[in-house]
C-alpha cells in the first residue's frame, strides 16, 4: 500500500478525530437540534446546539458513520463553538464549496484545519460523507427536524 498516496485523504488529523471525536455525546440542554442521515451508507448523526443571542455557545454531536463523516463532524464542532450564526453559515458555504470544487482549484485558506477534508474532492462518492454534519448543522440552525444528504 502506498501510504503517502492514501494520506492525501486519510491524514493523521482525520484519523485522530475519527478515533477521538471532540464534542461527542448528547448535552444536558440545547436550544437547536437536528438529525442527519445518509441513506446510502447508513451514516447517522444527531447534532445539538446551544445558541445564546446569535452566538453558538455549545455544539455537540453523537451517532455513527465512516471516518470521513465522523472527523468532519468533530472538526466542525470544534470550529463552530463560539462563532455567530452568520459566521457558521458563512463557514458552511466556504466548506461545501471547498469539497465540491474541481480538483485543481485552490482551497480557501480561511478554512484552517478543515483544509484536510478538501482531499475528499478526489473521491466524488465520499463528498456526502464530508458534508453530512454540515447539512445537519444548517438544518438545526434553521430549526428543521431532519437533514438528509438525499434532499
Amino acid at each position: 500500500m502506498d501510504i503517502a498516496d492514501i494520506r492525501e485523504l486519510y491524514q493523521d488529523v482525520i484519523l485522530d478525530h475519527n478515533k477521538s471525536p471532540r464534542n461527542f455525546g448528547k448535552p444536558h440542554t440545547h436550544t437547536h437540534t437536528s438529525c442527519g442521515h445518509n441513506p446510502l451508507c447508513g451514516d447517522t448523526f444527531e447534532l445539538f446546539c446551544t445558541v445564546d443571542g446569535d452566538v453558538i455557545t455549545d455544539i455537540r454531536f453523537e451517532g455513527s458513520g465512516c471516518a470521513i463523516s465522523k472527523a468532519s463532524a468533530s472538526m466542525m464542532t470544534s470550529e463552530l463553538k463560539g462563532k455567530t450564526i452568520d459566521e457558521a453559515r458563512h463557514l458552511f458555504a466556504t466548506f461545501t464549496n471547498a469539497v465540491t470544487s474541481p480538483l485543481d482549484s485552490p482551497v480557501d485558506e480561511s478554512l484552517g484545519n478543515l483544509v484536510v477534508l478538501a482531499g475528499v474532492r478526489e473521491y466524488p462518492v465520499r463528498v456526502k460523507c464530508a458534508t453530512l454534519a454540515w447539512h445537519t448543522m444548517q438544518s438545526a440552525l434553521n430549526q428543521s427536524q431532519t437533514a438528509s444528504t438525499e434532499s
Binding site: 485523504l9 486519510y10 451508507c41 451514516d43 465512516c66 471516518a67 470521513i68 473521491y123
Partner: peptide, 9 residues
C-alpha cells in the same frame, strides 16, 4: 472501521 473507508482505501 466503516466499510466505506475500507472500500476507498
Amino acid at each position: 472501521i466503516h466499510p466505506h473507508d475500507v472500500g476507498s482505501l
